[in-house]
Design a protein around this nucleic acid. Structure first.
Lengths: 156, 156
DNA sequence: CCGCGACACTTGAAGCGTCAAGTATGTCTG
DNA sequence: CAGACATACTTGACGCTTCAAGTGTCGCGG
């Protein structure tokens, strides 16, 4: 027997769907236009940039960017072609390959960051009460946890 | 001068990005597996299904599903090939084309709905306090509004 | 020390979404 | 009432994401 959503949940859900449908393209669009980057490209560069040594194993980068290994592999190939990252075999295990942000990649990120942050502030945080920022963190964290938990349940 | 995000905003933002990156594929995946539908396909059918006459102009459906007309046009073509919706010219204006949910499409939706709603409940609402549901509606609404406002600003 | 899953990726094909451009229709303005 | 501009779509090409399948490596039980 299906437990349907009540009116409050339905409204909340429709708006959350709206966020996924509209915010994501909006961010991609700004980054594409100004820096020839996908939002996901940006995330990869950003994650590498604030890691000691600007280097991470593929799987670690995948998990930090919430992506599948396959998706990441394709994107890293693209970024590598552009000389923004480099792949190197790990000295520790021959299974893992390390991705490193290059100087060139760092420059790209530095150039892209202000416009991107400006956009995020404008589209998300401008006019949002501090208590709502906290609520956003709480709710978004809750959802991410639940999705991860469910993936484990069905994969295993 | 860029106003960077403070620590709270940064955390909230990373998690929201996580939601967009993980929840969206999770929903697509369940619908694809169980009903050969995209989440966006589902939304289109659902929006038509609770409209008087199960019929809407393309542009109205686009706006209700938060999509571009182009995206919608492609998807409606696909749904039309499967006989789940039908296009008809509007009697009122020769510019507008109406999309109607067929009986067959309605059946597909009815079969898909329980699994989808179950998934949404499991991934989003299960264990979420009522006050957080309210907060989610508020924050998501805020973001959608801001994205729409910004589109108007840059398009015009 | 050998097999046999599990892990860390990579690759190719198929489908989705976006962007730019094109068509046809309406509306408004001088 | 002619031209220009806006609206309502459609189409094609290109890049991105996913899914399924494949390769190579590691660890562990017998």
């Amino acid at each position: 027997m299906t437990r349907w959503l009540d009116a409050d949940e339905q409204r909340a859900w429709l708006r959350l769907a709206g966020v996924m449908l509209k915010l994501s393209p909006a961010l991609d669009s700004q980054l594409q236009r100004d820096s020839d980057l996908t939002h996901f490209d940006y995330l990869c560069l950003a994650m590498l940039s604030d890691t000691e040594g600007r280097t991470l194993p593929m799987s670690e980068l995948a998990s930090r960017t919430n992506a599948s290994l396959s998706r990441l592999s394709h994107v890293v190939s693209k970024l590598e072609r552009r000389r923004w990252v480099a792949r190197t075999p790990s000295p520790e295990s021959r299974r893992v390959t390390l991705v490193t942000l290059t100087e060139e990649g760092w420059d790209v990120l530095v150039k892209a960051a202000p416009g991107h942050v400006e956009t995020v502030r404008e589209l998300v945080f401008e006019g949002l009460a501090p208590e709502d920022v906290a609520a956003l963190e709480r709710v978004a964290g809750h959802i991410v946890e639940r999705v991860e938990a469910s993936r484990l349940r069905t994969t295993t």
